[in-house]
Amino acid sequence: HSLPGKKTTNKVVSHLVLVEPGEIFASPDPSLPDSDLHTLTTLCEIINRDLLITIGWAKHVPGFSVLSLVDQMALLQSAWMEILVLGIVYRSLPLSEELVVAENFLLDREQCRNTGLLHLHAVLLQLIRKYRKTKLDKEEFVTLKAMALANSDSTNIENVEAVLSLQDHLHEALQDYEKEHHPEDNHRTGKLLMTLPLLRQTANEAVRTFCQIRLEGKIPMHKLFLEMLEAKM
């Protein structure tokens, strides 16, 4: 787990920083020659592993584990791609045009063009530019990620009140954090929340892209990734 970058008195935010998973690394199959299919295979393998990590992480989001199993499943099935996209976007903030899918697996525009991911690359860059302009920090990133999980707009929620309470809890945490760290900008919480529609739009585009890859059937995809994609169909 990463150590907090700055001290914050908000316990939810500091807990989220503490439980943030460590860096993710690609483990490409050395027996495969370098090719666009190999790139996509590695990408799908990273996504599957990131999904496993994300499900483990969700259990540590304050208030998530007290929800019913049905509601935990509903939130994750709705929000998993937003959570994965936000991770890639945050990792890519220091670079100009490349997507940092894993620490040792970057995708540039040309690779995205060759693998059919050019449109996805473009929409991800729009989101990256937006967060770069906002100077999104780690505390805000981890809190927004938890908010994406709680705010998934799933239609399969059993206990709506409990999910609304989780949303309020995280909203308060973000407001607290901004009061403490950005007192000069009263609108910063709102600005961050106003990035969530583009995050959802980008995640939906990513789901469409991987559903297409699945339909084409050329790339091996792990069972968890397939199961989560199917939940989106």
């Binding site: 483990g56 499943m73 199961e227």
Partner: peptide
């Protein structure tokens, strides 16, 4: 839950490191 058995199992039982 039958259609989503891996997610169900991961949430109910193990940590991801068990998989």
């Amino acid at each position: 839950t039958e259609r989503h058995k891996i997610l169900h199992r991961l949430l109910q039982e193990g940590s991801p490191s068990d998989i």
